[in-house]
Computed example of a mutant assay.
Amino acid sequence: MCDISVFVRKNGMEEKVLENVDRIEEVAGGGIRLVNIFGEEETIRARMILYDNSEKRMIFAPM
């Protein structure tokens, strides 16, 4: 499986937003919509700073 965990980095700390994410898309207004394999969704206003496939994680920074 290639499902990843998404984190937002604030003040040097990483907060997990959603696990098992398999869909990431930009939405109107500059948001990022995350959807996992269970259909759970989160929308964040952030920019991507790291994608690490070997660790199955993606890190965003708030905008």
Rank of each mutant, 00 (worst) to 15 (best):
M1E: 15
C2A: 15
C2W: 15
C2G: 15
D3W: 11
V6K: 02
V6H: 09
F7P: 10
F7V: 03
V8L: 14
V8I: 15
V8A: 08
R9A: 11
K10Y: 12
K10V: 13
M13Q: 12
E15F: 09
E15A: 02
K16G: 00
L18I: 07
L18V: 03
E19V: 01
N20L: 06
V21R: 09
V21H: 04
D22H: 07
D22W: 06
D22V: 03
D22S: 10
R23H: 07
R23Q: 01
I24E: 00
I24H: 00
I24A: 01
E25G: 03
E25F: 01
E25Q: 08
E26S: 03
E26V: 02
A28Q: 06
G29H: 10
G31P: 05
G31I: 04
I32K: 15
I32V: 15
R33Q: 14
L34P: 07
L34D: 08
L34A: 09
V35E: 15
V35F: 10
N36A: 05
N36W: 09
N36H: 08
I37S: 13
I37V: 14
F38G: 11
F38H: 12
G39K: 13
E40C: 00
E40N: 02
E42T: 07
T43L: 08
T43M: 12
R45E: 09
R45H: 11
A46C: 01
A46W: 01
R47N: 02
M48S: 04
I49K: 12
I49M: 14
L50S: 08
L50H: 03
Y51K: 11
Y51S: 11
Y51E: 11
D52Y: 08
D52M: 08
D52F: 05
D52G: 02
N53S: 10
N53D: 12
N53L: 08
N53E: 10
N53A: 14
N53C: 09
S54N: 08
S54D: 10
E55R: 11
K56Q: 14
R57V: 11
M58L: 12
M58S: 08
I59N: 04
I59Q: 05
F60I: 02
F60T: 06
A61H: 03
P62D: 03
P62R: 01
M63K: 11
